[in-house]
Design a protein around this nucleic acid. Structure first.
Length: 310
DNA sequence: CGCGTTTGACCCGCGC
DNA sequence: GCGCGGGTCAAACGCG
């Protein structure tokens, strides 16, 4: 992150070129078990943009995003988001200021019995929180009485019998020069992995705030290197520490959208994003006419608004 | 010195 | 059971 500190972040760069993944989103959902068609009910912007952007390789974007969310995308032409396999909470093509972001949220993909209530603040990530995990480590090591290198390193974080829980996730595809988009929160990079079939690595970030378990993955599309896929997991338990105008709202919204207890209608999110775009972007961009810039967000994202509102 | 990044090692889940 | 890929850990390192 230190690399980004130096250069001032222009939130326009976050907004300026949103990708758009138009009709396939709608077409691909037929037969989906979750009524995604409703979620993808035509928003004015879908219609407005799709005619212009339809020629783009939308299937690729859908597949990319699906991959970013670990959604089975093997049959992308028929089901770009693997909706038959994953409980998609929301799929939202989001238009803003001449460009678009494709946003997708999924439900927890690997938990069968967890409650949806307060999933964002649950303990799952705590397994990886240094403070939280110390004790289980000790227990394990003592119980084992086995102190080879492996057990030292390995058994720290995970208890057996407990399936790793996944927070709901929410992904953005954004056209951007920088991989790690400034969003007002502070992130600590904890890993980087090479992505199969891609020359670009995937970076793993965790929110640096104490007790905040939000994570995000950032990777660049190998099909369109200008596209950055950002996947948020979990929900912030705090206000954003740094007010980076514009982008922070968007991504805060994204993070919050990951919480199933706060399901956001795609159009609502679309409006939020568009609203922020219209407020923060350069006036040269065509702005959608949207009223009540904060009203909806207050309903949807009260905590984030309290903390991040300008 | 504190905080963040890098990077190799390791575990887990899954498909075969 | 094995191998692979994704995800995470943590020591080492860099930077302000």
């Amino acid at each position: 992150m230190s690399g980004e500190k130096g250069k001032p972040f222009h939130h326009e760069s976050f907004f300026d070129q949103y990708l758009f993944s138009p009709s396939p989103l709608r077409g691909a959902t037929s037969g989906g078990p979750l009524g995604i068609e409703a979620a993808l009910a035509p928003s004015p912007y879908v219609g407005a943009f799709s005619s212009d952007y339809l020629q783009s390789s939308f299937v690729d974007y859908g597949e990319l995003l699906a991959k970013a969310l670990d959604i089975n995308s093997s049959s992308s032409t028929q089901n770009a988001f693997g909706l038959g396999d994953e409980a998609m909470k929301m799929v939202s093509p989001v238009a803003a200021g001449g460009g678009t972001t494709l946003a997708v949220a999924t439900a927890n993909s690997s938990v069968s019995s967890s409650s949806t209530e307060g999933a964002g603040e649950e303990e799952s990530g705590g397994k990886y929180d240094k403070e939280v995990k110390k004790e289980p480590i000790k227990e394990e090591e003592e119980a084992k009485g086995d102190n080879d290198d492996k057990s030292k390193k390995v058994n720290k974080a995970r208890r057996k019998g407990e399936k790793r829980q996944r927070e709901p996730r929410f992904a953005f595809m954004t056209r951007s020069e920088v991989d790690h988009l400034e969003d007002g929160y502070r992130w600590r990079k904890y890993g980087q992995k090479a992505v199969k079939n891609s020359p670009y690595p995937r970076s793993y970030y965790r929110c640096t705030a104490q007790k905040c378990l939000v994570k995000k993955r950032v990777e660049r599309s190998h099909q369109d290197p200008t596209v950055v896929i950002t996947t948020y997991e979990g929900q912030h338990t705090h206000h954003c520490p740094a007010n980076v105008r514009g982008s922070s709202h968007i991504l805060a919204a994204a993070a919050a959208a990951g919480n199933p207890s706060r399901a956001i209608h795609p159009d609502a999110l679309l409006q939020q994003l568009s609203n922020y775009a219209s407020q923060t972007l350069t006036p040269t961009l065509p702005q959608p006419q949207l009223p009540d810039p904060y009203g909806l967000l207050q309903d949807i994202l009260p905590s984030f608004l309290n903390g991040c509102r300008p």
